[in-house]
Amino acid sequence: IEIVNTELLLADLEIISRRINKIEKLTRLGEAQYREELELLKQIESGLNNGIPARKILSDERGLKELKHLQLITSKPVLYVANISEKKTLQEESYREKVIRVANQEGAPVVTIFGKLEAELEELEEEERKEFLQEYGLKQSGLEALVEAGYRLLRLITFYTVVSKELRAWTVVEGTKAPEAAGIIHSDMEKGFIKAEVIHYQDFIAAGSIAVARERGLINSEGRDYVVQDGDIITFRFNL
């Protein structure tokens, strides 16, 4: 882990150094608008030289947005994965504990997966998968746990649309409003957005169909300010 983190720090340091050289030339030519960025870049450079990743230095949204174009690797959130066997040997548990300690120091999440089991699960049918997981005392596969942890880390949610009896899933960031969500499907839907007809997935399952849900008054009509929720099933109304 230390070797990988060091390589990532060095890669970002190279990017920052090149940018500083360019900005310093511009400021010497009288381009005053770059002075604030230069100050921030030097702050990051100092941190990287001391082994501090950019994500810990750029703690505010403004700083992250200003330097987003640099695509610094160490500015990204981190998720650690401990891949061990289902036997959980003492040596493997020792490695896993080390990963957990490193993650805790960074305040990063950790997911433990059993690589061999995951490979076997991929070859099983749905019912067999459930029995297999129960046999090992697992509620879900490691892959499912990894996806969920990744979603939480990146603040992602899923909403659904139904087209010709086909349920499709779409991923957006928490806080996304209805028109923006429509734009994920097609830009014309965002431009011509009128309203969103929304029902939560659990209500839809209980009703059994959109038609029954509509009869029961479970579908809400929402406007432009509606914030999409995880598990929403949405029908977008729009003009072309």
Rank of each mutant, 00 (worst) to 15 (best):
A32K: 15
E39V: 09
N83M: 09
A32M: 10
L90C: 00
T27K: 15
K88C: 02
P77R: 03
K65D: 08
E45P: 08
L90F: 01
I73P: 00
E31W: 14
Q91K: 05
E24Y: 13
A54W: 09
L58K: 11
G63A: 09
R62V: 05
N83C: 12
L58T: 10
Q33T: 15
I44Q: 08
S75H: 04
Q33L: 11
Y80G: 04
S46T: 14
V81L: 10
K98H: 01
N49F: 09
L48E: 07
Q91M: 04
E36A: 14
I84M: 08
I44D: 08
N50W: 06
A32L: 11
T89I: 02
R55K: 10
G63Y: 11
K98D: 05
I52C: 02
L26Q: 15
V102R: 05
Y80K: 00
L38P: 08
K88V: 04
Y80F: 11
L72M: 12
P77A: 02
N50L: 05
K65T: 08
E37G: 10
N49V: 04
L72R: 10
R55E: 05
E86D: 09
I84A: 06
Q43Y: 03
L58H: 11
L48C: 08
L70V: 05
A54E: 10
T89W: 00
E36V: 11
N83T: 11
V102T: 02
Q33Y: 14
K25N: 15
K68H: 04
N50I: 02
R96E: 12
V78S: 01
G30M: 11
E45R: 15
S75Y: 03
R101V: 00
E31S: 14
N49H: 14
L67R: 04
L67N: 03
I84L: 11
T27M: 15
E61I: 08
K87Y: 09
D60R: 05
E93H: 00
